[in-house]
């Protein structure tokens, strides 16, 4: 059982880290389980949105949360064959501290035949105060059913 879970996690890690844009942002899948995922990325000068503060652009944080949300849906025991974002709302609580790694945690807390509902939050090294939170809906792609 744990071996199978380890194998699933290994495949998910390979899959997510091979996505071109996730790779461009340096994302790494740190943990994945039934309906949840943890993905992080390093601070980089290229991702700065406000040169006067060196704070990373909100869009880069969105990209991290979106990827993490998708991974949470894919890892749900409901076993979707694929997923795409329907909508995603991000609330920005505070600027992420320049130079620090950002970690996103997402949970697919409900899934229907067609929709996965996701909550996510992002932190820098100060784990007591979130940088941003997000909620979104994702599609659930089902494998094509064999017709009789």
């Amino acid at each position: 059982m744990s071996l199978e879970a380890g194998e699933k996690a290994r495949i998910a890690k390979q899959f997510i880290e091979a996505i071109p844009f996730s790779k461009a942002l340096g994302m790494s899948l740190d943990d994945i389980g039934d309906g949840y995922a943890v993905i992080s990325m390093p601070w980089s000068e290229e991702l700065v949105g406000d040169p006067s503060t060196g704070v990373i652009h909100g869009g880069a944080v969105s990209a991290l949360m979106d990827t993490c949300g998708g991974a949470a849906v894919m890892s749900h025991p409901g076993a979707p064959a694929g997923t795409a974002t329907i909508d995603l709302r991000i609330d920005y609580m505070r600027p992420a501290t320049p130079g620090q790694r950002i970690v996103a945690r997402a949970e697919c807390y409900n899934i229907t035949r067609s929709v996965g509902f996701v909550r996510a939050s992002a932190f820098d090294e100060d784990e007591g105060r979130p940088v941003a939170t997000a909620s979104g809906a994702f599609t659930v792609e089902r494998p094509k059913e064999a017709k009789a």
Binding site: I19, F21, S22, G58, A60, S62, A63, T67, L88, I90
Partner: peptide, 12 residues
């Protein structure tokens, strides 16, 4: 295109 790219593009 990655959803995060689209979100970034729109926010920018």
């Amino acid at each position: 295109i990655h959803g995060g790219v689209i979100a970034s593009f729109l926010e920018m």
